[in-house]
Structure formats: C-alpha cells, structure tokens
C-alpha cells in the first residue's frame, strides 16, 4: 500500500495530465488477495510448512531412516542419549523401529509436497494448453483432440503405473509422470468446456476484428477468463495427487521404505492406532493443515482474480 506512489500535487498542473497505465491483472489480483486475511494467513502457513519440511531435518539432528530398536514407538518427548553422548529429544516420539517421527514427517513432507505441486503443475500446464487449444479451434481439431483424451481416460490408472514401473523401474520421476499424465485429462476437459463458451462471446470476435492473432487471443482474452475454475480445480488436484501417491506407496509402487511420505506415514500410523496414536496424529495433522491451507488459498485466489466479485 505504501509502495503505490500517490499522484503528487505537481506544479505542472497545466501540462497534459499524467496518465498512469493501469495495473496488470496480476498486480490487481495481488492487491485484492492482500486484503483477504484468511488466504494470506493460510499462504503464510503453507510457506512455513514448506520451509519446515525442507530445512527442518538439519535442525532436529536426527536421521529419518536411522533405527533404534531400544526406543520402539516411544511417546512424544522421549529423550534419547546415544552412547557417545550426543542425542536429544524426540519431540513427536518414535515409530516402531525407533526412528524420529518429526524428522520423518519432514522428509515425508518433502516427497508429498513435491509430488503434489509438481504433478499438479504439470497437469495444469498440459491441461490448460491442450484444453484451450481444442476448445478454441473447435470442429475436427476438437473432435480429434478430445477423443485422444477419452482414450487416455479409459486406460486403467493402476495398470498404467504398474506397466511403467516394470518397464522403467521405480523412481520418483515416474510417479510425477504417471500422476501428471492422469490429472491433466480432467483439467483439459474443464478448460475446453469453458473456452467453448467463451469463444462464442462477442469480445473474442471483437478481438479478432482488432487484428489479434489466435495465440494472442488465447493468452490475452481466453486464458485469464478460465483462471477461476482452473485455480479451484488445481487446489482440489493437489490433495488428490497426494492421496494417489499414498495409494501407490501403499501398493509398493511409490515411495519405498525406509524412505517416507505423508501417505506412507499415515498408513503406518493407522496400523498402530490403538497402541501409539501419535504415529497417526502428527502426520495426519500436517497433511490436513496443508490441504486446508491450499483450499483457502485457492478460494482467495479465485476471488482475487474475479474482477467483478470484489470492487476496488
């Protein structure tokens, strides 16, 4: 707010009035988003969770895969002193193999957040580009492109992933690819439907009559108009992707032990729910907090990008 230069009462009052070129859609959206406290709070929390996961392991001092069979599933706050005198507190306890839960949550968060954000990003990029093109071109192009999407839709996801892993071996990259390859399909359909409606609007015709080229119309006039639904769908995709990763890991196709992700941690925790509930409680808390924040940030973004919903 303080950065926006107020038009100073200038002595050159008789010159042509200085016209401030308008802020872009993004600057505008940012200004509106800043006023949405809940979204900003959740955004801050998300950043904190990301930093926590990626920087935290250096601070706790524990190795997420180091086992200690003397401390099986100890409750939060247990103090471990190694024979050499080093050690510290297990703030969130240990798992049945004596590994520090807090550090494992951080390590697992790295994997889950990466999968969630990268796969959604890939889905977003391909889905929006593909859907917008199909919707804009229409006719035979649309037919061909959407039938291709239908064919991919019909492929059973699990068989697809099993096929990939047997052919290329298990790797993180493959999970990104496989999930991205599935998630973009729905995105493409949503965007295509939206674009089909928009293309029939007169302002697209008007843009053509101004001499804009097809890519320019898509980028300037069509895609900003579909951002609302796209953003909401993306915030729904991130949790879906994280759950998919958890399911894959559960089947032994995703993250391999002793490595962890939030999905695998929650699975392990659910098995030990009766004896040591903190194994489920802490990873689940992080997982839900992340999804919660994503939803509010998504809502906030949608409102910020809708020029009609919130007036200046």
């Amino acid at each position: 707010m303080s950065t926006a230069a107020a038009p100073a009462p200038s002595p050159a009052a008789f010159e042509l009035p200085h016209v401030q070129p308008g802020r872009s859609l993004w600057q505008d959206a940012w200004a509106r988003l800043r006023r949405n406290r809940l979204a900003i709070l959740c955004g801050g929390l998300l950043v904190a969770i990301v930093l926590f996961c990626f920087l935290g392991p250096w601070l706790t001092g524990w190795n997420p895969t180091e086992t200690n069979l003397a401390l099986k599933a100890t409750p939060p706050g247990t103090v471990e002193i190694r024979p050499d005198g080093s050690g510290g507190k297990h703030w969130m306890g240990t798992d049945p193999l004596g590994r520090d839960i807090l550090t494992r949550i951080m390590r697992g968060g790295q994997v889950s957040l990466m999968v969630g954000l990268v796969a959604t990003g890939v889905a977003l990029l391909i889905g929006v580009g593909y859907g917008a093109t199909a919707g804009y071109l229409g006719g035979r192009w649309d037919m061909g492109m959407m039938r291709f999407v239908d064919v991919l839709y019909a492929l059973p996801f699990m068989i697809f992933v099993i096929l990939l892993t047997t052919m290329f071996g298990k790797s993180m990259l493959l999970i990104f690819l496989a999930i991205g390859a599935v998630e973009w399909l729905t995105m493409a359909r949503i965007v295509r439907a939206q674009v089909q409606v928009l293309v029939r609007q007169e302002f697209v015709e008007a843009a053509r009559s101004l001499g804009l080229s097809t890519p320019a119309i898509l980028i300037r006039h069509i895609i900003p108009n579909v951002l609302g639904p796209v953003i909401v769908y993306s915030t729904l995709t991130v949790p879906a992707v994280m759950l998919l990763e958890a399911a894959l890991s559960f089947l032994g196709l995703g993250v391999q032990p002793p490595d962890s992700s939030w999905g695998t941690l929650i699975n392990d925790g659910a098995e030990n729910l009766e004896t040591s509930p903190w194994l489920l409680l802490y990873p689940a808390a992080f997982f839900s907090a992340t999804l919660f924040c994503l939803n509010f940030v998504g809502d906030g973004l949608r409102d910020a990008l809708d020029v009609r919903a919130s007036k200046d």
Partner: peptide, 23 residues
Amino acid sequence: QRIRGSRISMIFQDPMTSLNPWL
C-alpha cells in the same frame, strides 16, 4: 490481421458482451 483494427475497424451489436470483462 494487419488491416483489421488499423485500417478497417468494427463495432458490434451488444456492448455488454463485446468487451472483455477481465481487462
């Protein structure tokens, strides 16, 4: 494209829909 909007311009029937609501 070079002629449209520079040497020949057009105005449309419905001013409610011929402006992009987002810009």
